[in-house]
Write a protein that binds this DNA or RNA. Structure first.
Lengths: 195, 195
DNA sequence: CCTTGATCTGAACGCACGTTCAGTTAATAA
DNA sequence: TTATTAACTGAACGTGCGTTCAGATCAAGG
C-alpha cells in the first residue's frame, strides 16, 4: 500500500501539529514517540517526515507559532494612554489568551530544555519581546507617579508569573468562571502596583 | 570484578540521589537514563537497583523528601500573631528556601506528570498542606480587617506563583542579592494584599 | 584468620526509539 | 486517457532503554 484515499498535506499537516501538541502537553516531549504521534494521526511513522525534518522541529515550531500568535494577539489589543488602563488591558488579555490555549502554554514553559541552544535562544527572544510590553507599561506608570513599584523588570516577572499561574489550577468546569478569575487577578495586579 | 574498594551504601546512596536530582533537573526525568545516572556516580547500572526498586521511585523519593523538607523548615519558622508579620515571614521564607534548592524545586514542579496516579496524589497532598499554611494566614488577616483581598484560596495561588517565579530568573551571580530580591517581593506581596 | 553479608560487575533480556528509503498508490494536470 | 507528482506504506538500520541476575570481590565482626 502507499498513498491513501483522501490524503492531502493541507489536512495531514495540521493533524500532525495537533497530535504533537496534545501528546507533548500530556506526557512531555521526551516521553512521546514519533510512532505515538503517527498513531494519533492515523498514518505510519515514516509519513511524519514529509512534514518535519525531525522531532525537535515539531516542538520548536509549536513554540514559535504559539509565541507569534501571542504577540500578534497583543498587538491587536488597544493600548490606552493611561498606564493603569493599559495595565488592566494587559492583565486581562494575558489571562484570557493563556486560558484559551493551555496546551500550547504548558509546552512553551515546560519543554524549553529540550530545545537546542540556537532554538532556545530564538524562543527566549520572542518571550522577552512579550515581557517588554509589560515592562514598558510599568515604567511609564512609574514615571507618571501612578504606580508605586520598585524595579519595573522585577515587577514584570512577578506579575507574569502570577498571571500565568492561573493555568495551573483553572478548569472550565470549576466553581469560578474565567471572567470572574480575570477580575480577581486584575484586582490583585492593581494592588500590587500600588493602585 | 565485583564489590569495589571503599564502597559503602552510606556513601553511594546519597551520591545516587544527588546524581539523579542534578540530571533530572537539567535534562528532565524522561530524557535521563539509568545508565547516565550510574555513570555520574561511577558505578555500573545494575548497582542502582540495590538502592531503588525502579526509576520512578527515584523521582518520587526526591519529590517527597523535598516537600517534607519544606514543611519541616516552615514549621521551624516563628509564626507571629499579627497576620501581616506572619505573611512577611512566609514570603521571605518561601523565597529563601526555594532559592537555596533550585534543582529540587524545579523537579517538584515539572515532573509531576511522570508520577503514577497514586504517587501524584501523595505529592499533591503534601503541596496542599503547604499552601494551606498561607491560606490560613490570609484568612485570618482578612477576618481581622488587615488584608484587602478576595478569595483567600485564589490569593494563595497567586502569591505562591509569584514568589516561586523568582526561581526562573534569579541567579547567584546576577546584579541583585537574594536579600534584596526578598525585600522587593515582600513589598509586592504586601501591596497585593492591600497593606 | 575466617566467615558472613554487603556491594558491585558484566552480561544479557526483549523492546522501543528516531530516522531513512525504495516502492506503491491516489490525486491532479495535460 | 495518460503522465506526473504528491502522499503514504512497510520494512529496515543501529542504538539505547529499564530491568534482572549469577558470580566476584570487599568490609567487618568474632
Amino acid at each position: 500500500m502507499a498513498r491513501t484515499a483522501g490524503s492531502h498535506s493541507a489536512l495531514t499537516a495540521p493533524r500532525i501539529r495537533a497530535a504533537a501538541q496534545s501528546l507533548f502537553a500530556r506526557h512531555g516531549f521526551a516521553a512521546v514517540s514519533m510512532r505515538q504521534i503517527a498513531a494519533e494521526v492515523g498514518v505510519q511513522v515514516g509519513a511524519l517526515y514529509n512534514y518535519t525534518p525531525d522531532k525537535q522541529s515539531l516542538l520548536f515550531d509549536l513554540m514559535v507559532d504559539h509565541l507569534d500568535d501571542l504577540m500578534r494577539a497583543l498587538d491587536a489589543e488597544p493600548l490606552p494612554e493611561d498606564p493603569m488602563q493599559a495595565l488592566e488591558g494587559f492583565a486581562r488579555f494575558h489571562i484570557r489568551h493563556h486560558a484559551a490555549r493551555p496546551e500550547a502554554v504548558f509546552i512553551a514553559y515546560m519543554e524549553l530544555r529540550n530545545l537546542s541552544p540556537e532554538n532556545f535562544a530564538q524562543v527566549e527572544a520572542l518571550r522577552h519581546r512579550y515581557e517588554d510590553r509589560l515592562t514598558a507599561i510599568l515604567t511609564r506608570g512609574q514615571a507618571e507617579g501612578q504606580f508605586r513599584i520598585g524595579d519595573p523588570r522585577i515587577t514584570t516577572m512577578a506579575i507574569i508569573a502570577m498571571l500565568t499561574g492561573v493555568n495551573t489550577w483553572f478548569r472550565e468546569t470549576g466553581r469560578l468562571r474565567l471572567d470572574e478569575v480575570e477580575t480577581m487577578y486584575w484586582d490583585m495586579t492593581r494592588q500590587l502596583v500600588g493602585g
